[in-house]
Simulated scan of single mutants.
Amino acid sequence: MEDMLNFEGETGPYVQYTHARACSILRNAPSPVTDHIQGLTDEGSWEIVKLLAAFPNIIQNAYEYLDPSLIAKYLIDVSQAFNSYYAHTKVLTEDEQLHSRLALVYATTVVLKEGLRLLGIHAPEEM
């Protein structure tokens, strides 16, 4: 039971916590979130962009192979990439890339929330 409720590692609460953390960033944003991710050239950003772009294929494969664990593993990968990005990037720094970073965070929350929903798991905005 302790392993299942752990906020670290490959667990549901880890993904939920990542979603809540990303929502917290958006709540603290100094400006509104846009939907344009442009100008982000760091490796961490592009790792997340590539993962988020794979979401439709992950859903399709999970459906075709009747294997929801594909979605669960994917959400872990997205969470790990986002947490690594967050650890190395000051997302809320007011500069020319702020809107793009916020859009990336928002896109991450959308994918995590929908992936958790597909698995029947609530995506809290606060923890």
Rank of each mutant, 00 (worst) to 15 (best):
L119H: 03
R27C: 07
E2I: 04
K113H: 08
D3M: 05
A29E: 11
T89R: 04
F55T: 01
N6G: 00
H19Q: 15
D77H: 06
A87G: 10
E64T: 05
G120M: 13
D3N: 02
V105E: 10
D35C: 07
D95S: 08
L102Y: 12
D35S: 12
L119Y: 06
N57T: 03
P30R: 12
L118Q: 12
N6H: 02
K73R: 14
G12T: 14
I59C: 10
E114M: 12
A54N: 09
A22F: 05
G12D: 07
Y85T: 06
T18W: 08
F82C: 09
V110F: 07
A103M: 08
R101A: 03
A54H: 02
S45R: 01
W46A: 00
A107K: 13
Y17C: 08
Q38W: 03
L119M: 14
A22Y: 09
L116K: 04
Q60S: 13
G9A: 13
L112I: 06
A29H: 13
I76V: 11
L51P: 00
E114V: 11
P68A: 01
A87E: 14
R101E: 07
I37C: 01
V78G: 02
L75P: 01
L118N: 10
T93E: 15
A20H: 10
V78C: 07
A62D: 02
D95F: 13
L52P: 00
R117M: 10
N28E: 15
T89C: 11
E43L: 09
S84H: 08
I25V: 15
Q97S: 12
D3G: 00
A87K: 12
Y85D: 09
K113P: 00
N28D: 15
G9T: 10
K73W: 10
V105T: 15
P32G: 11
A53V: 00
G39W: 04
A87L: 08
A81C: 13
G120D: 12
H36V: 14
D95G: 04
G12C: 02
I76L: 09
A103Y: 07
I25L: 15
L70D: 03
P30C: 06
A62S: 15
T18F: 10
T41W: 07
E47V: 04
L52H: 02
L98R: 08
L104N: 02
E2L: 05
Q80C: 11
T34R: 13
Q97L: 09
I76D: 07
L75A: 09
I48G: 05
R117Y: 12
N28V: 01
Y17F: 14
D3R: 07
N57Y: 04
Q97T: 13
H19G: 11
V15D: 11
V49A: 05
I58Y: 01
N83R: 15
L92E: 04
Q38Y: 06
V111K: 00
A54K: 07
L70Q: 07
Y65F: 06
Y74H: 10
G115T: 10
I58W: 01
K90Y: 12
E8R: 12
A123H: 05
V49H: 01
V91P: 04
P56M: 06
R101P: 09
I25C: 08
N83T: 09
A62K: 05
M4T: 00
G115Q: 09
A29C: 14
D3W: 01
E47H: 07
P68S: 03
S69N: 12
S69M: 12
A62P: 02
P56S: 06
W46T: 01
C23R: 14
L112S: 11
F7G: 08
Y86K: 02
Q38H: 04
G39C: 02
S45N: 04
K50M: 08
D77V: 01
